[in-house]
Design a protein around this nucleic acid. Structure first.
Length: 477
RNA sequence: GCACGGAUGGCAGAGUAGCUAUGCAAGGGAUUGCAGAUCCCUGGACCUGGGUGCAAAUCCCGGUCCGUGCUCCA
């Protein structure tokens, strides 16, 4: 069964064939660290985490590169406001990024390339573009001249030069005074007073946004590579600009073989963004939902679909996530790994899971199978007889929900969860048993009022009573 | 305005031609002093108008509505 990937350039699902057999180079546009990361960043990081995890599961040798745009107008603005060095601002937010992403089980990329560490490569690339006359020097920087490669226009968005010309309307001339045409874009921006800068043949300045990614992907992955990813909102102009730069600089028609774009997070039907003021930082969100449950929420739809982020979505994910963790922890205490290949049900779940993931990384389909196995494991645990089957289902979850989807906490944490529960039960069990006996006596004499009072008291100790035909059972909330 | 994408039960959200997921919610039943938990059962959907097909939620054309992009944006 072959892996199919939806490629934005050709606008269809294509069977994935890497440039070099069994090897995959993937570059994903990362964040500009001028503020703490928000849910959109989480969605992007988790989407590509899943994509790389799955490709590794398929035994591809994956090189996953992403970046931090650690010099940029917005970072400079924050630095000025706080009267700090721009790198301090960037580093602070990068730290925040790693902290929240680690909490959500986002595996680290092979390399987090930084713009400030790629300046020579960027300058080289711009020089070549000037030599090839694809770029010109303006009075406030260097610009890429769109008219030198009009055939490359609209490769991702279907727009033509004329469309954009008319569409931009009154905004022409607002930025980049040195441009010949408003559709040209900056490769190098001259430094204004008090701005950080690097020396270049065109004076002191800093790189434009688009050229960084062309230079960094070239530096780390070579002239052509398999996958380029990012958020849908980067399609235009960012990724189209990259196509101009990389392809004109290298003289190669297709630098990127597959383009992958993840969908946005919506609130009330609109994209979550700073300008609308409807964004949430990841850290703030952790107050209402734990990190891995949030990961669950963000994988609950295929990566290309927009996600409507609201209370319903969050609450449902919590239910599923808690069910998964509780069931898994219960089986974990039995501590045995088993072979799921011996059970038709688990084999069938594996097959559906795999075909879902192979179909453009459809995590929603994969989740259904996880839910099915959780349900089966619950039944098995309740019955308690088929220990081997329990171990097999446990192993299945360990592999598919844990290793591949990254939804499970590490073993130590699961142990801690179990241990805490055991300790908590031990600490109050004597008292609980006393109260239960008293309650049973009250029930026998049909003193319901008294029995309910005792139940209330137990509830206040976070103990939940469940009466059953075999007598009352209790557990910690 | 132009480009791209979407429209599935009360809600979330799969499914790309025949077998109509899944979860939450709802209703009914079993069990129960009540509650909870669990189990069983039930109803209910494919935006609209055409077209192609033996057969369409699924393919084609038109319309309507929504989102994204055209400016920094994951």
């Amino acid at each position: 069964m072959a892996l199919k990937i939806h490629d934005t350039r050709s606008k269809k699902k294509r069977i994935f064939n890497p440039i070099e057999k069994d090897k995959v180079g993937i570059y994903v546009c990362g964040i500009t660290p001028y503020s703490p990361s928000h849910l959109g960043h989480a969605r992007q990081a988790i989407s590509f985490d899943i994509i790389t995890r799955w490709m590794r599961e398929l035994k591809f040798n994956v090189t996953y590169i992403t970046n931090f745009t650690d010099i940029d107008d917005k970072i400079i603005k924050v630095a000025l406001e706080e009267n700090k060095d721009f790198l301090e601002i960037a580093n602070r937010n990068i730290e925040d990024y790693f902290k929240v992403m680690d909490a959500m089980n986002v595996l680290r990329a092979d390399k987090y390339s930084r713009v400030t560490e790629t300046i020579p490569e960027i300058i080289d690339m711009i020089s070549i573009l000037i030599d090839k006359e694809n770029a010109y020097i303006g009075n406030d920087g260097v610009y890429f001249e769109i008219d030198t490669a009009p055939e490359k226009y609209g490769q991702l968005t279907g727009q033509t030069l004329e469309m954009v010309r008319s569409g931009a309307g009154g905004r022409v001339g607002e930025t980049g005074a040195g441009k010949r045409d408003h559709r040209d874009f900056a490769l190098w921006k001259s430094a204004k007073e008090d701005e950080p800068y690097w020396e270049s043949p065109w004076g002191n300045g800093r790189p434009g946004w688009h050229i960084e990614c062309s230079a960094m992907s070239l530096k780390h992955l070579g002239e052509t590579f398999d996958i380029h990813g990012g958020g849908r909102d980067l399609l235009f102009p960012h990724h189209e600009a990259e196509i101009f730069q990389s392809e004109c600089c290298l003289g190669i028609e297709h630098v990127v073989k597959y383009w992958i774009h993840n969908g946005m997070i919506n609130v009330d039907g609109e994209k979550m963004s700073k300008s609308l003021g409807n964004f949430q930082t990841i850290n703030d969100t952790f107050a209402t939902i734990e990190p891995l449950a949030l990961r669950y929420t963000l994988l609950n739809a295929p990566y290309r679909q927009p996600i409507e982020f609201n209370t319903t979505m969050v609450e449902e994910s919590k239910i599923h996530y808690n069910r998964l963790i509780n069931t898994y922890s219960q089986a974990f205490t039995l501590g045995k790994l088993g072979d799921w290949n011996k059970y038709d049900f688990l084999l069938l779940c594996s097959e559906k899971f795999i075909s879902g993931m192979n179909d453009d990384f459809n995590t929603r389909v994969a989740f259904v199978e996880v839910q099915n196995v959780v349900k089966r494991l619950q039944e098995l645990l309740l019955d308690g007889k088929e220990i081997e089957y329990i171990s097999a289902a446990f192993s299945w979850l360990n592999k598919f929900a844990g290793e591949i989807l990254g939804l499970l906490p590490c073993n130590e944490e699961i142990e801690n969860i179990s241990k805490h529960t055991i300790d908590a039960i031990a600490a109050i069990s004597v008292r609980v048993e006393e109260l239960l006996i008293e309650r049973q006596k009250s029930r026998e004499t049909k003193n319901w009022e008294r029995a309910d009072l005792i139940r209330d008291e137990l509830n206040s100790m976070n103990v939940i009573i469940e009466d059953s035909p075999e007598g009352p059972k209790w557990k910690i909330e």
